[in-house]
Amino acid sequence: MASMSSSPTESAIQSAILLSKVELHLDRVPVLQSLSLDVAEGGRLGIIGPAAGGKSVLLKVLVGLLKPDSGSVKVRGTEISDGDENTLMDVREEVGMLFQNYALFDFLTVGQNVAFPLHRQRDRIRKSSGDTLSDSEIDERVEARLLAVGLAGSGNKMPSELSGGMKKRVGIARATIARPKLLLYDEPTAGLDPVTTSKMYDLIAKDQKETGCTIVAVSSDVNALCTFADDIALLHLGQIRYQGKSDSIADADDELVRQFVSGADQGPL
């Protein structure tokens, strides 16, 4: 794993994400239970936990794709738990997200997928100020982003022509191209080899250094995520079992947390 610079948490002045007592049921099954979470502006939070523990659901709650049954969800100071579409539109303008299943639009080419957020951003700016990115500027930024994720020259391919790892990288390029203030990564390195994993985390860290964005990443690759993130939260059965510095998780008091991090056979899991 390549070295990773620390995030600019020193300049944090407010919470980028503040969840308080969030409850969510899906098909009558409790998925998030009295979940509270605080992520500082400019911070990097890694979320780990056993499968079906609610990690991906939590990310969707953070951008209003799922509405909690109760509790408060504040994103960069804006309450979104009431599901008001106008508020959500405003909040989502500042969010980029890599989905677990890549979520690449299969009717668009790779280049069009990566350019999609920029076109949307351009449409919004056109409506307000009128000063927008030109087509050639968008093309340049798309090319640069594809080069950064190691997919230079793939712009004209269709998503169906790509491997899972390549789709993941296109997803990262699309999530980051509009330089959002909050980036959510759902399994950013799943399906990637160790070298590419290291490169992806380096790229994400470099982007963060430039933009000062806040990052929340969910990953099953505990070691890589602990190296990348400042803080780690372990989510188990919809509850936060641990939240603290990533370098001290191995010494956590909770036996379940220690077992999950060490990968031991014996234990409460």
């Binding site: 989502r92 997200m97 989905f99 639009f105």
Partner: peptide, 8 residues
């Protein structure tokens, strides 16, 4: 979900 996240 990705469409909704893009404000569409």
């Amino acid at each position: 979900d990705a469409l909704r996240l893009s404000g569409i």
